[in-house]
């Protein structure tokens, strides 16, 4: 297709104006976090007589937000590694074996992908109380892991079935069992898919609010929930609120920037595999 100069200029202008509109919220968040309250109320975009300060960051970290960030890291790291390990094994089981009611089990798995967190919370709260899992990090990690399984198994299985059977057969002749084949042959080949799943799951867990506030007490809240402590509907302290917001998004944004390609693959996996 021929691309005229005018077309090129127009489409770039449209794209970049939209891009800047999408960027404004982030600029607002950062600007409000590094300026004194009086200047935010006068408009964070107003740059005449601007002063910059890190005071808000110091205040929110001292108020315990650093703990929330550590909690987030702990929960998100383990709630990423554990389900991938388990889902990969099950996905290989689905790929390599035939068994009765396989279709039914697989259909159930596909269907429970869409279950809302609210659908399980009432019995989970009772279960957590009975098993003394309430307010324990391992409790919420296990729940996040379980919720990750349906889509990760589906995603990884779709990748596994694209791996040629020759690899497997060669390994079998060399005397490897199924578990050996999974860990030594399949998993290394599937690394790109595993990383995609890991990035999506890590960011997803980092964002979670509902399980965090229902299964943990505030001192163990991840940062997604921790920032809400600074919210006040009628009298907001913008500096502290936005500084907390910036601190809460640094990790997922860095992960996204470094892993952009894998993240996109993971997110669109439902249709592309």
């Amino acid at each position: 297709m021929k691309v005229t100069r005018r077309y090129k200029i127009t489409i770039n202008a449209v794209a970049w104006i939209l891009g800047i509109i999408l960027l404004i919220p982030l600029i607002a968040l950062i600007m409000a976090s590094i300026r004194p309250f009086s200047e935010i109320v006068a408009g964070w975009w107003n740059l005449s007589n601007a002063h910059f300060t890190l005071e808000n960051y110091r205040t929110v970290l001292a108020a315990g937000l650093w703990r929330n960030i550590l909690n987030s890291l702990l929960i998100a790291v383990f709630a990423t590694i554990l389900p991938i390990l388990i889902a990969g094994m099950a996905a290989y089981g689905f790929t390599a074996f035939s068994f009765p009611i396989k279709t039914m089990i697989f259909l159930t798995l596909v269907a429970i992908q869409v279950i809302p967190q609210q659908a399980v919370i009432v019995p989970l709260l009772k279960l957590f109380r009975d098993l003394h899992m309430y307010n324990q990090f391992y409790g919420i990690i296990l729940v996040h892991s379980a919720f990750a399984l349906p889509w990760t198994i589906f995603f990884l299985r779709n990748f596994f079935i694209s791996i040629p059977k020759d690899y497997e057969e060669a390994a079998r002749i060399d005397g490897l069992g199924d578990i050996g084949i999974y860990f030594r042959i399949i998993l290394p080949i599937a690394m790109p898919a595993v990383i995609s799943v890991a990035v999506v799951q890590f960011i997803f867990v980092w964002q979670d609010l509902f399980f965090a506030i229902t299964l943990l007490r505030p001192e163990k809240w991840p940062v997604s929930a921790g920032v809400t402590r600074f919210i006040s509907r009628y009298n907001p302290n913008w500096g502290q609120l936005t500084a907390a917001g910036v601190l809460a998004i640094i990790v997922p944004i860095v992960v996204y920037v470094l892993m952009q390609k894998y993240y996109m693959k993971g997110v669109s996996g439902g249709i592309k595999g």
Partner: peptide
């Protein structure tokens, strides 16, 4: 990629 609570803070501002 950011928590919805932060999205909320951004739009409140």
């Amino acid at each position: 990629v950011m928590p919805l609570t932060v999205v909320g803070i951004v739009w409140m501002l």
